[in-house]
Write a protein that binds this DNA or RNA. Structure first.
Lengths: 202, 202
DNA sequence: AGCCAATCAGAACAATGTTTCGAAAGCAAC
DNA sequence: GTTGCTTTCGAAACATTGTTCTGATTGGCT
């Protein structure tokens, strides 16, 4: 029972909030110790005391991003058509990516040197994947897809990741119409039942 | 008719070669002006005179990466089965990514702040995509796929990009066997004829 | 009130991107 | 060979950033 000042999570949460806002507004380069400290009205030392180093701060943004992504995916609630639900999931992923391009970049492209993901980060990513796996499993149970639910979910998310990075990476060489078309096409190509029956034969 | 010293491409090519090697060996953080200059036996100023800034140097590595990727994809030569050819293309993409993880990261994840891709970079990416588009078109002509060749190629490459970034991003939370399985599953899901017929109904 | 961890303020160091300046070197025409 | 122009070099200098350190201050807890 320490009779000492307790470290409240307020300062840590506040710094994280500021860093998230700064990332969304001005990109990854705005996550600099001096700037975050100034914007949060705190000291540079506090950041290092609370997060260890810059990679630690970004790691927390990374974690939080996956939590938010999963929450956003959960807003697409389940209907009686699991294939339609998976299409909705892809749509929700795209919405999230377009609303948070810098965050998606941190989560899936890692635009910084230091932060090397480890088992914990992998687990966070897996937790997000669970939201997809569950719906894939329902589609399998209803005979609309065939194969391993985890593998199918992984492929679906990989495609979403690739499409989203292409779309948010900045150059925007294509029209909105063709990007819409390609997201729909991806869902068509991935979610047709006969596609995954081939896997059974493998 | 200038009676002046001509700028030969030798120094530029040598610096690029050194930078590519350094990237492959030690990652993106090893691309630093002082280090590249020292490794190349040249001066820091030369880098700025030849490439403008660090982003310019990385841009050239980016360009070259797409050229090499296209060359590697071309090594998977065409047979009489265009679907098998597209599977071979995906395999070749994966081989390239696993052999050049840092380069793939520069090309598709952009692990640095400065270099913002523009129309020229987009064109380079499109050129690589052409290698895929041609084979997709052959599959369409033979009735094995249906839809817009460019869109299908884009989705195929987006999936390759997502799978490759997941695989080479470092954490490797999964076994080689499951990664093999997922690449095969992705090909199954994407390259089944009936999958893309849905697009026609759209 | 007093203890003690949390936090701050500011300096300091290293690494990096970038620019500048003048000197050295190479190539082409005379 | 000499001259003129460009390339390339060498080194210094500046700004920014990540990071650490040291000592002072603060605020909750007993």
């Amino acid at each position: 029972m320490p009779r000492v000042k307790q470290r409240t999570p307020q300062l840590r949460d506040h710094i994280l909030e500021v860093a998230r806002t700064s990332l969304a507004a001005d990109g990854i380069e705005s996550i600099a110790a001096r700037r975050v400290a100034a914007d949060a009205g705190t000291s540079i030392a506090a950041i290092y005391e609370l997060f260890g180093d810059k990679a630690g701060l970004i790691r927390e943004i990374f974690y939080d991003g996956f939590r938010r992504l999963r929450d956003h995916l959960d807003t697409a609630d389940a209907t009686d058509d699991p294939i339609a639900d998976l299409r909705a999931l892809m749509r929700a992923f795209r919405e999230f990516a377009r609303a948070n391009p810098s965050l998606i970049s941190v989560m899936y492209a890692r635009p910084y040197d230091d932060f090397a993901p480890g088992p914990a980060e992998s687990a966070t990513g897996n937790a997000t994947r669970e939201a997809v796996t569950g719906r894939v499993r329902r589609a399998i149970e209803q005979g609309r897809l065939h194969g391993n639910a985890g593998d199918i979910a992984h492929v679906l998310l990989a495609t979403c990741q690739g499409l989203a990075l292409q779309e948010t990476a900045g150059w925007l060489g294509t029209s909105v119409a063709s990007r819409n078309r390609r997201w729909n096409l991806a869902a068509d190509m991935l979610l047709t039942a006969s596609a995954t029956t081939a896997q059974q034969r493998r």
